[in-house]
Amino acid sequence: MPKNFTRSDRIAQQLQRDLAELIRAELDHPKASLITITDVEVTRDYSHAKVFYTFLGTAEEAEAIAAKLEAAKGYLRSELARGFKLFKMPELHFHYDHSVEQGMHLDSLIAEAGRLPKAPDEEA
C-alpha cells in the first residue's frame, strides 16, 4: 500500500536535510558539526516550522548552541529561502530534543535490569 505524504511532510523533510547541511557548513561555532536535526514539523499554512535537534556535548555547550541557533535563525531562514519555491518561508523555532537522552537512559536501565540476579523459579 503506497504511503500518502502531504506537501507539508515533503517540505519538512527537505527543510531537515537542508538545515542540517547549512548548520554544519555555515554556523560559526566550533561544535556545530555535533548538532543533529532529528525532526521538523511544519504547520499547515507553512508559516512556522518546529526544528528539533540534539547535541553531543556538555550542558553548558548545549546552552551556547541553543543561543547560537536562536541568533542565526534569520540567516538560516534566508539561506533556506533561496532553495525553496514557497510563497512564504516558515519561521524557524528551535527545540532541543530530549528523546535521545531519554532513550539512552532507558537503555541503561534495561541493561542494569538484565544484570540483576534471577528469581529461583526463573533459573530452570
Rank of each mutant, 00 (worst) to 15 (best):
A66L: 06
Q14G: 01
T38E: 03
A81C: 03
F55G: 08
D97F: 07
E70H: 11
A111W: 00
Q14S: 12
S99Q: 12
A119G: 09
E63H: 07
G103Q: 11
G83A: 13
K88I: 15
Q13N: 11
E60F: 02
E70W: 01
E26N: 13
G83S: 14
I35D: 01
D121E: 15
R82A: 08
G103P: 05
K68A: 15
A25P: 03
P117S: 05
D9V: 09
S8D: 08
S108Y: 07
Y75H: 12
L27K: 07
T43V: 08
R82G: 09
I23R: 04
R17N: 07
E26G: 04
I65L: 07
L76N: 03
T58A: 06
Q13G: 02
Q14C: 02
D121W: 14
Q16W: 02
D28F: 10
A12Y: 02
Y46T: 14
K3P: 02
I23K: 10
F84H: 11
I65D: 00
S108V: 08
H48P: 04
L27T: 04
D39Q: 11
E21D: 11
I110M: 09
F5M: 06
E123D: 11
P90A: 02
K50S: 15
M89F: 10
A113S: 09
Y96W: 07
S99P: 09
I65V: 10
K50N: 15
A81Y: 01
I11L: 03
S33K: 13
A66T: 15
Q14D: 09
Y46Q: 10
E101H: 05
E61S: 07
T36N: 14
E63T: 06
A119S: 14
H95A: 06
E60N: 05
A111V: 01
I35R: 08
L92K: 08
T38M: 01
A71S: 15
T58S: 15
D97R: 13
D97A: 04
H93M: 10
L76D: 05
S99D: 03
Q102R: 14
R115K: 13
A32K: 06
K88R: 15
E79Y: 05
Y96E: 02
L76R: 02
V40E: 02
E70C: 01
S33F: 10
